[in-house]
Design a protein around this nucleic acid. Sequence first.
DNA 1: GTAAGGATTGGC
DNA 2: CCAATCCTTACT
Length: 170
Amino acid sequence: MKKNPLSVDFFLHDVLEVAPALLGKLLVRRFNDGLIQRYRITETEAYRGAEDLACHASKGRTPRTEVMFRQGGLVYVYLIYGQYWLLNLVTGNEGDASAVLIRGIEGTSGPGRVGRELRLDRSFYGESLINSERIWVEDAAPVTSIQISKRIGINYAGDEWGSKLWRFYL
DNA sequence: GTAAGGATTGGC
DNA sequence: CCAATCCTTACT
């Protein structure tokens, strides 16, 4: 059962606030067999709107990016390199086109492996973290210190956006 | 319809 | 360092 699920309000702030605030929170997954697993979030990255050239939403409102333009609290998943489902949590208000990439959870390292551990697939696209019975986020004790760095793997975005310190980790 | 490239990973 | 692997996007 859900213990202290985050309400939609948590996600309706600027992605630069939400991304570090997610560190230490519990990503919860209820699998088909009923087993519930909780994973402590250890690494996140912020992707902030249509003007952020590293953000997929900078390509416009396409079938792939559509969910990022909606109100926060939804899941944005996409397949990368034809192999890995990456998990993002949509933030902000309608039109903000921002999302947090979950790059790491306790026990695994790397965003591709997060998706594998959670057994994500395209059916999670657009799922509400508020209503879902198979994926949500629960509150947890605040973390004491947060590390910051440049975002990973976005060299194509150029210096202005590639140099933003929008990666947060424990 | 065709082609290029990617918010990665794992193996050499 | 580099291949795997296939969807999304930008073109013709």
